[in-house]
Amino acid sequence: MHVHSVACRTDREPECSRFHYEKQLLEKMVRMEFNMERLQQRLDIVSEPFAKLNVM
């Protein structure tokens, strides 16, 4: 008689729930928005001297 055992793998990666995925996506979007605002501020600072040249 030969017995086969079925081992349960406990080293699998944890499953991501939909809530977890959406939370990570939202956090990423908030970081992107923050970075875009910072880039816009930097662009405004750099562009200011050129805007003054066009007025004169």
Rank of each mutant, 00 (worst) to 15 (best):
M1H: 11
M1Q: 10
M1R: 05
M1E: 15
H2V: 10
V3H: 07
V3W: 02
V3S: 02
V3G: 01
V3Q: 08
H4S: 06
H4W: 06
S5C: 10
V6K: 06
V6M: 09
A7Y: 04
A7M: 06
A7T: 04
C8R: 09
C8L: 15
C8A: 10
R9V: 04
R9G: 03
R9K: 02
R9T: 01
T10M: 11
T10Q: 11
T10G: 11
T10H: 14
D11C: 01
D11H: 01
D11K: 00
R12H: 08
R12T: 05
E13K: 07
P14W: 01
P14T: 00
P14I: 00
E15S: 03
C16G: 13
C16N: 15
S17K: 01
S17R: 01
S17P: 04
R18T: 03
R18A: 08
F19T: 04
H20Q: 15
Y21R: 05
E22N: 02
E22H: 08
K23A: 14
L25K: 13
L25W: 14
L26E: 11
L26D: 11
L26F: 14
L26Q: 12
L26G: 08
E27K: 02
E27T: 02
K28C: 10
M29G: 03
M29F: 10
V30H: 09
V30C: 11
R31Y: 13
R31S: 11
M32C: 15
M32S: 06
E33I: 13
F34H: 13
F34W: 11
N35L: 15
N35H: 12
M36S: 12
M36G: 10
M36L: 15
E37T: 04
E37D: 14
R38K: 12
L39V: 05
L39Q: 14
L39F: 05
Q40W: 04
Q40I: 04
Q40F: 03
Q40T: 07
Q41Y: 02
R42S: 12
R42F: 03
R42Y: 03
L43W: 08
L43Q: 12
L43V: 07
L43I: 11
L43H: 06
D44C: 06
D44V: 01
I45N: 04
V46F: 07
V46W: 07
V46Y: 04
V46C: 03
S47P: 06
S47K: 06
E48R: 02
P49L: 00
F50T: 00
F50P: 01
F50Y: 07
A51W: 06
A51P: 02
A51Q: 09
K52F: 10
L53D: 10
N54L: 15
V55F: 07
M56C: 08
M56L: 11
M56Y: 08
M56G: 12
